[in-house]
Amino acid sequence: MRLFCDWGTSSFRLFLVNEQGDVVTHTASSQGVSRLPRAEQPAYLLAQAQQLVTSPADLDVLICGMAGSGLGLANAGYQACPADARQLARHLVPVTVPSLGRVQLVPGLSDEQTGADVMRGEETQLLGWLCMSELHQHGQHRVCLPGTHSKWVQVQEGVIRGFSTAFTGELYGLLVSQSTLKPATDSHSDEGFQLGLDASRSKQPLLNSLFTTRSKVLLYQMPAECAASYLSGLLIGTEVREFSAAGDGPVHIIANGRLSALYAKAMAFYQLECQVHQGDGLSVAGLGKIAELM
């Protein structure tokens, strides 16, 4: 038995896994690293482990996500792309948590080949995606991981060759909560999202198009209840149009729920073939792959 942990900025998931890699039981909470001071995190991890097993002192713990950032248990740093599971397994960072076995953090990935990009947590999901199918481990693939900071990743022959980040999710959150574009309601509107996709294809500069979220409502060109989804469609559509230009073949989307549906709709709008993969379970599979190579 061992423990796998996916500890993000705003979420915590801990899994008890058997020798075959199957999840025996798990626990989850909203206690991400941003909500717990670093000094309190070891005790929290131990308390959660004790919910799953009476005596966790003999269990190894492998952790991915923001627990390896400056906010977490320790800074696990980044490994440069191109990178694969073996490289990540060679550079795990040990941390001491009293009353637990060997605790190790998975490093993130960096890409300085064409700029400056980093990811932390998504690399483990990508390893899980690679484990899903032999087909994923051969040839070239484009993978999109939507989220606060969406990642567009190039995978070749099972190796993460490079990636780019889109600030889409965080920008949307800031605009709808702290700007003059703040809509009257944030309920989803299919009409509004489609109008946003249409706007993303126009030749207007994005900084101008963003303001039309407000001006279209003021000029009665769009119902106020469409504004939030219009902004979402504009940003996601712009992301898909700009980031999908690199590479060929279908785009593999790793996401859950409505977010995966929105990205799939944007892909269809731009006539891009895509395949949607649910993100649940991929982190566990990725941690399992790293554990095999330790």
Rank of each mutant, 00 (worst) to 15 (best):
147 G>D: 12
153 V>N: 07
27 T>E: 14
290 I>R: 13
183 P>F: 11
180 T>K: 05
105 L>S: 14
188 H>M: 05
177 S>W: 10
158 G>W: 10
182 K>Q: 15
64 C>S: 14
291 A>D: 13
153 V>D: 09
19 E>D: 15
42 P>R: 14
110 S>E: 08
267 M>Q: 14
71 L>M: 15
47 A>D: 15
240 V>Q: 06
283 S>I: 14
285 A>G: 06
266 A>C: 11
128 G>W: 04
142 R>P: 04
150 S>L: 12
119 M>V: 15
208 N>E: 15
74 A>Y: 06
47 A>V: 12
10 S>W: 01
211 F>K: 15
128 G>H: 04
265 K>G: 01
69 S>K: 12
87 Q>F: 04
116 A>G: 02
189 S>H: 07
67 A>D: 08
273 E>M: 10
232 S>A: 02
219 L>P: 04
135 L>F: 04
175 L>D: 01
243 F>E: 07
122 E>N: 03
13 R>L: 06
12 F>L: 11
132 M>P: 02
104 Q>S: 15
153 V>E: 05
34 S>Q: 10
54 T>L: 09
103 V>E: 07
151 K>S: 10
233 G>W: 01
178 Q>C: 13
95 V>F: 02
49 A>C: 14
142 R>H: 11
128 G>C: 08
178 Q>N: 14
136 H>N: 15
249 G>I: 05
276 V>W: 01
278 Q>Y: 02
169 G>F: 09
290 I>H: 12
282 L>P: 08
240 V>E: 06
170 E>F: 12
274 C>K: 00
41 Q>I: 06
243 F>R: 08
52 L>F: 03
212 T>L: 15
26 H>F: 04
44 Y>K: 02
62 L>F: 13
167 F>N: 11
117 D>Y: 03
209 S>Q: 09
30 S>L: 06
214 R>L: 12
158 G>E: 14
171 L>D: 11
249 G>Q: 05
178 Q>Y: 11
55 S>I: 04
281 G>Q: 11
165 T>Y: 00
105 L>T: 15
126 L>P: 00
174 L>Q: 03
32 G>A: 14
70 G>I: 07
106 V>K: 07
234 L>E: 08
278 Q>K: 08
160 I>L: 09
241 R>A: 09
239 E>A: 05
269 F>G: 00
1 M>L: 10
280 D>A: 14
272 L>A: 05
271 Q>V: 01
172 Y>R: 07
217 V>S: 12
137 Q>Y: 10
125 Q>G: 10
97 V>S: 02
18 N>T: 12
70 G>P: 01
4 F>D: 01
231 L>R: 05
219 L>G: 09
55 S>R: 08
167 F>H: 01
251 V>G: 02
38 R>P: 06
249 G>P: 06
241 R>P: 12
152 W>Q: 15
139 G>P: 00
